[in-house]
Amino acid sequence: MKHWNEDDFQKWLYGLKEEDSHLESCGECRIEMERLRLARQRVIAAPELSEEFLAAQRRSIHSQLNHASRNFAPLRWALSAGMLAVVVAGLTLPHFRKSSVSLTNDEQLYSDLAAMEQSSEPKAIQPLHKLFEK
């Protein structure tokens, strides 16, 4: 059977190809596979990072977490209360305004109706009276 080539090994390294019967029986390919396994371990081994750098990063994260938890909750409450006030005002103010406007309109209508009711003649006839005045 044909030996595995670089492509085969590369696919195997990255989980895109399974081991097959050839690999099990071929010593040469098994040696190459072992070599590549060690090479992979070197790649995966994380490089060292300075503790000073990591500690500074942690301090920065902690200060942001403290800042966030100190400021976030009251700010969130204040924002929520503000939003609620705006919504309540938005819902109630037009209602008040509309009802006062409609009250005025209703009053006007009722007074007009009352005046019409009390008058024996329609207003439109009034100019005709002038024609017969001496």
Partner: peptide, 8 residues
Amino acid sequence: RLAAAAGP
């Protein structure tokens, strides 16, 4: 330089 410590 700051981030990478000397490797063994």
